[in-house]
């Protein structure tokens, strides 16, 4: 009962994806963590072009382990998203429609998602070996000096994620917990 999504996600598609939906993502995504986000937003503030096309882009918050010689990429699970909260509203305004991480988001991010149309997915934190198997190619786009934190272009196939916060601001972390606790009362 997973929703299959072929990337990129347009603004319209983002508005159709609902909180709580399990999705399988296929196509191109970009990786960026704290340090890369900081650099990307500094470029936006200076009015400069980003090193990749942010229009309808999905960014995965991941710093993978190094690939062994026979691997595309090492373990590649999500990092905690709130550290990107300072930067996400600017990227969403610039065109970003999908974010993949884990954990809570701040209200400014949710407001930007509602305003522009974007969706926040969670991948399973700590499942780096499993998620790695969905990544079919990986190449460094920029910021190679950041090592694991460099921006990479990934081609993924059926990457399992859950839509946590949708473009209406519905939040699975709140609703899932509430639904479970309700079920315990009955």
């Amino acid at each position: 009962m997973e929703r299959k999504i072929n990337l990129p996600i347009t603004r319209e598609m983002a508005r159709e994806i609902k909180s709580g939906e399990s999705c399988l993502l296929s196509g191109v995504i970009y990786t960026a963590r704290d340090a890369a986000h900081k650099r990307l937003v500094e470029l936006l503030e200076k009015g400069e072009k980003l090193p990749f096309d942010i229009e309808n882009a999905t960014i995965y918050y991941v710093g993978p382990t190094p690939a062994k010689p026979d691997q595309v990429i090492g373990s590649a699970g999500p990092t905690t998203s709130y550290r990107m909260d300072a930067y996400s509203p600017a990227l969403i305004a610039a065109g970003e429609t999908g974010m993949i991480g884990k954990g809570k988001r701040g209200s400014a991010v949710v407001e930007a998602m509602k305003k522009h149309g974007a969706v926040y997915f969670a991948a399973i934190g700590g499942a780096g070996a499993l998620l790695s198997s969905c990544i079919k190619s990986a190449e460094v786009v920029c910021y190679e000096d950041l090592g694991a934190e460099a921006v990479r272009r990934l081609v993924v196939e059926n990457l399992p994620v859950v839509a946590v916060i949708d473009s209406e601001g519905n939040n699975l972390y709140e609703n899932g917990r509430r639904a479970y606790l309700e079920s315990e009362k009955n």
């Binding site: 382990t65 090492g74 373990s75 699970g77 700590g126 070996a129 499993l130």
Partner: peptide, 16 residues
Amino acid sequence: ENYGIAARDNMPICQD
């Protein structure tokens, strides 16, 4: 499933 894959393929359970 994830820690099974990690043990089988001798790869880190988590990227962190």
